[in-house]
């Protein structure tokens, strides 16, 4: 069995920055969603009301431009959800649909001004 210290070396680091410019970096084991990592680390601003079903729109993030490709493809469903979010922009994603992996190790995400739940 590997030791805890060795296991920690495989953590993925991501940074969330809010609209006031405050940043929080977290280190989390990979393969879960970015949303789950954010919730586990109690990132204020990720509500994740539906916790991963991509039906509520409250885990919305803006992806730094250099990380958009690494964050992976959007499904049609996710795009339709984003189209319905008032604060969404071209670089918007639902963090529950981004896999936390070494591809986004070091990536930065901007939190929107507020999360708005779709009815």
């Amino acid at each position: 069995m590997r030791t805890w210290r060795q296991a920690r070396a495989e953590l993925v680091r991501v940074t969330f920055t809010d609209q006031l410019g405050h940043s929080v970096s977290i280190d989390h084991p990979p393969e879960c969603s970015l949303m789950e990592a954010a919730v586990e680390n109690e990132i204020t601003g990720i509500e994740a009301q539906c916790y991963g079903a991509a039906v509520c729109g409250t885990c919305h993030v803006y992806v730094g431009p250099q990380w958009l490709e690494a964050a992976g493809e959007k499904s049609e469903w996710e795009q339709a959800m984003l189209d319905a979010l008032p604060l969404a922009r071209a670089e918007s994603r639902l963090s529950c649909q981004i896999v936390l992996s070494d591809r986004i190790d070091g990536a930065g995400f901007i939190l929107p001004e507020r999360q708005e739940s779709l009815e």
């Binding site: 590997r2 084991p29 393969e31 879960c32 919730v39 539906c50 991963g52 079903a53 039906v55 936390l100």
Partner: peptide, 24 residues
């Protein structure tokens, strides 16, 4: 069972729009 495994992505709570709302 391997506590150090990279263990995510499983189907235990389903996937998609019906993903278990109670998993947390």
């Amino acid at each position: 069972f391997d506590i150090d495994r990279q263990t995510g992505g499983y189907s235990s709570f389903g996937h998609g729009v019906h993903r278990c709302p109670g998993s947390f």
